[in-house]
């Protein structure tokens, strides 16, 4: 087994709010992608998701029923006999750095990411999701500052390779940072290895271009 296939030691988990909203199916696609990617690496949050889905089941079971159309069962049996629709199977365990849900959006693993330089050695790749939120992969050279992309709204940052540190903590593979507008900090990629993150934000799309305001060039720590 390679390092990337074992479950990483995760200390920064999804919030209950995010998990419940993902269980309910009310998150923007970019956020769902981030949650699904974290859960692919984290059994703890997978189990917590199971609990919130159980609550969804209880809510469904408790709902006051609405009568189905008269021929409904027959119509459904006809659908069944017409054959199974092409449902893509749940993504299988990915062997590389990117967990399966991300591979799906990238169309492969790290080697297939179409990076665009944004300055100071930092690269990004915006992933195709619905427009209510944006998901991007960020590549930050070891020791470099993470570009300040402005915490408007909520921003999730999930580490996939390497690590970053800020004033409060260290975030390694699988760790997720949940930042809101009042958060001002300057995370820096760990010196050991180039850092790759998945960042999702519900900030308006005009931020899509990510104008990097990299104040500090390379902070060596």
């Amino acid at each position: 087994m390679t390092m990337t296939r074992t479950m990483p030691d995760i200390t920064h988990h999804l919030s209950d709010r995010l998990l419940m909203a993902y269980a309910a199916g009310t998150l923007p696609e970019a956020f769902s992608l981030t949650v699904a990617t974290h859960i692919s690496l984290c059994d703890e949050c997978r189990a917590r998701l199971g609990a919130y889905e159980s609550l969804g089941g209880a809510v469904l079971d408790h709902a006051a029923p609405v009568a189905m159309a008269e021929d409904s069962l027959a119509a459904t049996m006809a659908r069944i006999r017409a054959g199974a629709p092409d449902v893509p199977p749940a993504p299988r365990r990915a062997p590389g750095v990117l967990p399966a849900p991300l591979c799906d959006y990238v169309g492969g693993d790290l080697a297939d990411v179409r990076w665009r330089p944004v300055g100071m050695g930092v690269k990004q790749a915006i992933l195709p999701t619905s427009r209510d939120a944006t998901a991007r992969l960020l590549y930050i050279p070891a020791g470099a500052a993470v570009p300040d992309h402005g915490h408007r709204g909520t921003e999730l940052t999930l580490v996939l390779q390497g690590a970053f540190v800020d004033e409060t903590a260290r975030f390694g593979r699988g760790d997720i940072e949940i930042a809101n507008e009042d958060m001002h900090h300057m995370p820096v990629a760990d010196i050991g290895e180039d850092c790759i993150c998945l960042a999702a934000t519900d900030a308006p799309l005009r931020f899509r271009g990510l104008i990097p305001r990299i104040a500090q060039p390379f902070l060596r720590i």
Partner: peptide
Amino acid sequence: ATWIFTIARNRRIDALRRQRRPEPEDL
């Protein structure tokens, strides 16, 4: 009930919100 809820939820995302639903990778 939980299992049916997850299927119905995914149908809802597909039909009402017209979005994809990224799923965690299979165990």
